[in-house]
Write a protein that binds this DNA or RNA. Structure first.
Lengths: 97, 97
DNA sequence: CAAAGGTATCGGAAAATAGCGATTTTATCA
DNA sequence: TGATAAAATCGCTATTTTCCGATACCTTTG
């Protein structure tokens, strides 16, 4: 994944918002949508106020860039922040941008 | 300037390249295009291989987001990296993203 | 003041992205 | 198996971005 792609993923208010919400899943989402692997698509969609397809596409984009991790569990897909990748990005900007 | 705008500015290969080149002006540009205030538009345009208008617009976009500083000097406009802003962005990602 | 050089801005065509509804896929459960 | 539920993918239009050529704006110099 090129850095350009990561910055593209971040250049959208809704996607930045998702990353913020996922900093504290239990505070921002009902418990039944959360597990140790993150938050399911449906709950994020509800909170975003967009269609299911839009939420799904945003989440999978963030995952493709590495900013989120994804875990399928039964019929649910849980997305979670990838703190390592976020830290790497911060370091990259400090050291290489 | 919202963070989204900074990320938009960074989600373009040519603009990221400009930031890289400006890390070492004298290495990447002929001395006559450089001064302590940065590198003039014309030299950056030549190196980018785009039209003058495109170079000018990319540079002023990077300046509007705060990533570059601009100094007019006679008939030349010099652009320079804003290291403070870049450091702030790195810290922002590490601490708040 | 006129000419020339460097830069900025404007207007537009082509390409990319946003976000939706419809459909398909995958998993559960009776 | 069929019904149902969650999520992914597809197809589409509207909007935004990209990048250009033309033009306008400054500044220097004759």
């Amino acid at each position: 994944m090129e850095h350009v792609e990561v910055f593209k993923a971040l250049s959208n208010k809704a996607r930045l918002q998702i990353l913020q919400w996922l900093k504290d899943p239990t505070k921002n989402f009902p418990a039944e949508g959360c597990c140790e692997n993150g938050v399911c698509v449906g709950q994020i969609q509800l909170k975003m106020g967009v269609t299911q397809s839009t939420a799904s596409e945003y989440l999978s984009l963030l995952q493709r860039t590495g900013l989120l991790t994804v875990t399928r569990q039964g019929q649910w897909t849980y997305y979670k922040r990838n703190e390592d990748a976020i830290r790497e990005l911060g370091k990259l900007i400090l050291e290489d941008l």
